[in-house]
Design a protein around this nucleic acid. Structure first.
Lengths: 192, 192
DNA sequence: GTCTATAAGTTGATAGAC
DNA sequence: GTCTATCAACTTATAGAC
């Protein structure tokens, strides 16, 4: 519940963010949003055109925060390998899943170019960041020069997204860590 | 639509399988199932206790088929690396997502131990198969002996599951292949 | 800006006829 | 076994009062 401090519009967006993460777009009803935000129907339809419009605002904000969190890990100190490890091992609420990645399993999100765009852009951006760091590592001799940095970036990102799937299936965050450990072993610098 | 040949009970299960794949558990209503199966309310509640019971039958069948498909690729001919490649490159309807993996993003599936069990067991089984093949490759000197086979198996499975996420986000199956290509490069046998 | 009232359609399930 | 009727609750949205 976001009943204090924030404006009604803010509370609606934050409530929607929570529910999209927890239940997805299809599983989130306006009623549930309004209850969590402590607002009435009128407020929602005053500030937003409807459920898709409110969801878009929520998704955009979540996408922006995820991108920023990824950049914090990836643009931190350390060698390329260390920065990739920092990204892979950064604190996550693994069993909640990726707040952006999970939206790709939402049929109504995928059916809407507008709702899908921030999801696509965010994952593409993180993939590019990862690819850039792999390239940097190649220039420093840390990674094999024959690797395609773009592909490795995609593999790293896929391992993270798939790690969430395995962890939720198993009901345990350890499954995420196992997949990450395997990837890090495969990426381990030649001169360790 | 499954209006011919099958029994009503079969048509209900097959319709549910389709819809669970397409829209997930939360996004699938009994009404939609009945329309697709060409059956009335009474048939569904005669053969099944309700939506969760019908979904369980559908999920179990899909899980079994996915396990069998994975085994066909992984227990085929070729070196360990070649069998892993065959599994990774086997024909998939990438943009539809993994019919089992996608269920992990369904809150009602994850909330039910009964519905989650076949999902967990299927992914665990495929992960074990992969780990076994990695071990075999290690014995043959194809993969580095210091790798933890269980972890690498998890990484391979995670890359596949994450590949679906990236492809659906991008709206293109190519994103799946890119992640797989990166993984295969990292797994490439020493004596290529 | 926010609220309640209202509405047409859907959800998931039960009852009972055939 | 299969069907339709019925049900209370929910979904998404509009109208209009305050």
């Amino acid at each position: 519940m976001y009943t204090d401090l924030m404006s009604t519009s803010e509370r609606l967006i934050e409530s929607t963010r929570d529910l999209l993460w927890e239940r997805g777009y299809v599983g989130t009803s306006p009623k549930a949003i309004l209850e969590r935000a402590g607002a009435g129907q009128g407020s929602m339809y005053h500030h937003f055109k409807g459920k898709p419009d409110l969801a878009l605002a929520a998704i955009r904000r979540t996408a922006e925060q995820l991108r920023a969190a990824a950049e914090r890990s990836l643009e931190g100190p350390g060698t390329p390998y260390e920065r990739i490890e920092a990204y892979l091992r950064r604190e996550r609420e693994v069993l909640r899943g990726c707040p952006i990645g999970r939206l790709t399993m939402d049929p109504d999100v995928i059916a809407s170019d507008e709702l899908r765009a921030p999801v696509d852009e965010t994952l593409a951006r993180i993939g590019e960041l990862l690819a850039g760091i792999v390239e940097e590592g190649q220039r420093q001799g840390q990674f094999a020069p024959e690797l395609d940095a773009g592909r490795i970036g995609a593999t790293i990102l896929a391992t993270v997204q798939g790690g969430y799937v395995l962890a939720r299936a198993a009901g345990s965050p350890a499954a995420f860590d196992t997949a990450v450990d395997g990837l890090l072993a495969l990426l381990a610098p030649r001169t360790a």
